[in-house]
């Protein structure tokens, strides 16, 4: 377990998301990809993903 004050906000947002998931069942669409860098490059080049 690590305490790092630099990431308090980001972790807090994740905790908020976790609560949302539990309370409201928000959809999750972050998919595991075999070629994650490809999606990142596409996003960088064209601004938006292709979905």
């Amino acid at each position: 377990m690590v305490e790092n004050p630099m990431y308090s906000t980001a972790v807090g947002l994740i905790l908020h998301g976790q609560k949302n998931l539990r309370d409201q069942g928000v959809r999750r669409i972050s998919r595991r990809s075999g070629f994650p860098w490809v999606f990142g490059k596409v996003r960088s080049l064209f601004g938006k993903s292709d979905d």
Binding site: G12, R28, R31, R32, P36, F39, G40, R43, S44, S49
Partner: peptide, 26 residues
């Protein structure tokens, strides 16, 4: 701002192996 968001997301995607398509924003 868009470029910086792309870079941060790309960095996280590469490290995690996930294609991040949606996010919680502060």
């Amino acid at each position: 701002t868009v470029n910086a968001i792309c870079k941060a997301v790309e960095d996280a995607s590469e490290k995690s192996g996930y294609d991040c398509q949606s996010a919680f924003i502060g």
